[in-house]
Computed example of a mutant assay.
Amino acid sequence: MSQHTSSPEQREKQKILDEVARSEPFRELVRRRSRFVRAALTFSIAWFGGFLLLIAFAPDLMATILVPGLSLAYLLGFSQFALVWVVTWLYIRMSDRVFVPLQERALLVAEEVAAR
């Protein structure tokens, strides 16, 4: 049986990746991005779950007509689309202000490590 051995070039690339992964900018990037995604996902699931629970257990409330042709159920249903746009906008905003600067700092670490 042959055993897979990596080339010196592959080992060097892995060493760089490992060092970048241990760097503070990269760890902060992963931490901040993960925190945002978890919060956005939790809120989105709760909003949709609340909508489904209201549909299932409060049909009379959801049948409330707000204006002719628009019930509370339709309004909350359409709010799901608005939620997607808001979360997308927030992610882009966080990316520009937080994630990209951290990514650039992590790339500098990678360049420094590769230059050694």
Rank of each mutant, 00 (worst) to 15 (best):
R32T: 15
P8Y: 08
Y74L: 09
R32Q: 14
Q103E: 00
V86G: 01
M94C: 14
D18Y: 11
S7A: 12
L90K: 11
Q10A: 15
W47A: 12
A82G: 15
L41P: 01
A63D: 05
F81Q: 07
F36L: 08
E19R: 09
R97Q: 10
W89Y: 12
A21C: 04
E9V: 11
L70G: 06
T88G: 14
A56T: 08
V113L: 01
R116W: 02
F51H: 05
A106T: 03
L54S: 05
E111L: 11
G69P: 05
T5P: 06
E24S: 06
A40R: 09
A106G: 01
A21L: 02
D96W: 10
E9Q: 11
V37R: 12
E24I: 04
F99H: 06
F36G: 03
R105F: 00
L102N: 02
A39N: 10
S7I: 03
V100A: 09
L54N: 04
A63Q: 04
L108N: 12
I55R: 07
I16K: 05
L61T: 11
L72V: 01
A115C: 09
A115F: 09
F43K: 05
R105W: 03
R35Y: 09
W47I: 09
Q10M: 11
R105G: 01
R22C: 05
V84M: 08
F99M: 04
F43Y: 09
F99I: 07
E12C: 11
E19C: 05
S71K: 01
L29R: 02
V30A: 08
V67F: 14
Y91F: 13
A39I: 09
G69M: 01
Q103C: 00
V86P: 01
V37S: 10
V86A: 04
R31T: 14
R22K: 12
R38G: 12
T42S: 14
T88W: 15
G49P: 06
Y74F: 08
A21V: 03
S71R: 03
R116P: 03
D60V: 09
A82C: 08
I55E: 04
E111G: 06
M1Q: 12
E9A: 13
V30T: 06
P68W: 02
V37L: 15
L72H: 00
L53G: 14
E24K: 06
R97F: 06
A106Q: 00
E24G: 02
S7P: 05
A110I: 01
E28C: 04
R11T: 12
S23V: 01
R11Y: 07
F78V: 05
Q103H: 07
L102I: 04
A106P: 02
P59A: 03
G49T: 11
F43G: 05
A106I: 02
S79M: 12
G77Q: 02
I16V: 15
R105N: 02
A58D: 03
L66Q: 00
A58G: 08
Y74W: 14
L53T: 08
F81E: 07
E111Q: 10
L102W: 03
L61S: 08
P25H: 01
P59G: 00
V20Y: 00
L72D: 01
G49H: 04
R35G: 10
A110Q: 08
